[in-house]
């Protein structure tokens, strides 16, 4: 009969209309928390799928690629504080398909010879295509793809060519946004430290690589038992970060002064904060990395 097809189609639309309320009924009176969110974003959901963006954001997966950043040692690293991982070998600039990476190789002021450190490092985000080749081909794990996509600006002339200061982020930042990958890379490097640092340490008669950002002078026994980043990889993606209460400021300053974390134990950086997964009660506040804004 003419019209049955249309009615059938309208039935589907009506069904969709009704099912959008199913979750609302199911979770009536409950807070819109992580559990609700995870259900809504799962395949099992038949109701509303909307991510209420500024109030809840769909976190991006580990392999997500956005504008690259440069890895440095942590600012509070007892041995190599803030040292660049980049050796200015130029491979990222060579592989970059749209050629948006610019590197000024560093030179030793005394000898005038090139030294393995970038003098300047620029990425033109107006050209970058977020392909991830720089991170893929970097032999030193020194350039990584960022997860922070909230970069919108009012002015591109000043904001869109990222210089070294803006690009540099601490290694702990990378460990926190991509723990699994960071752990795999650490395994491949055979230790926490940069491969060149490992060579230098071997020459100096030290252990080739530390297991985390620890001091060489007083290695603590627990550290050997539980390598920080390896444990991080197994850590569940718990919402601890979002819900953990911030520590009092004075305590945080104190913590920064003692220069201890993230080792020993299961230290994970969540957002701006450091969290010990073994003892979730203790939360220490750290200053941000120089470029992390």
């Amino acid at each position: 009969m003419f019209g049955t097809g249309i009615l059938k189609g309208l039935g589907v639309t009506f069904r969709h209309f009704v099912t959008t309320f199913i979750d609302d009924i199911k979770y009536l009176g409950k807070k819109r928390d992580l559990e609700v969110f995870q259900h809504k974003q799962s395949l099992a959901n038949v109701g509303l799928v909307t991510v209420e963006y500024p109030d809840e954001k769909l976190a991006v997966p580990e392999r997500f690629r956005f504008v690259p950043f440069l890895v440095t040692y942590n600012q509070d690293d007892p041995e190599y504080a803030g040292k660049d991982w980049c050796t200015s070998c130029g491979i990222c600039a060579k592989v970059c398909p749209p050629q948006c990476i610019w590197i000024v190789r560093g030179t030793d002021p005394n000898t005038g010879r090139p030294k393995p450190e970038p003098e300047q490092f620029y990425i033109d985000t107006d050209i970058c295509m977020n392909c991830g080749y720089c991170a893929e081909y970097c032999p030193f794990d020194a350039i990584k793809m960022d997860h922070n996509y909230e970069l919108a600006s009012y002015d591109r002339t000043t904001a869109h060519i990222h210089d070294k200061k803006r690009l540099s982020k601490e290694i702990r930042y990378w460990q926190s946004i991509a723990p699994t990958t960071a752990a795999e890379e650490m395994e491949a490097r055979k230790g926490y430290d940069h491969t060149d640092v490992q060579k230098a340490r071997k020459k100096a008669g030290l252990t080739p690589s530390r297991v985390g950002p620890t001091s060489d002078k007083a290695p603590e026994p627990e550290v050997v038992a539980a390598p920080a980043a390896a444990a991080t990889a197994e850590a569940p993606a718990a919402p601890v970060a979002v819900q953990a209460s911030p520590a009092p400021a004075d305590k945080a300053v104190e913590a920064a002064a003692t220069d201890k974390p993230p080792g020993p134990g299961n230290w994970v950086k969540r957002g701006k904060r450091w969290i010990n997964l073994d003892a979730p009660a203790e939360v220490k506040k750290r200053s941000r990395g120089p470029g992390e804004e």
Partner: peptide, 14 residues
């Protein structure tokens, strides 16, 4: 398929 919270209000899935 998992994510890590980074931005304010980031909700993770696993």
């Amino acid at each position: 398929i998992r994510a890590e919270a980074l931005l304010l209000n980031d909700k993770v899935r696993d």
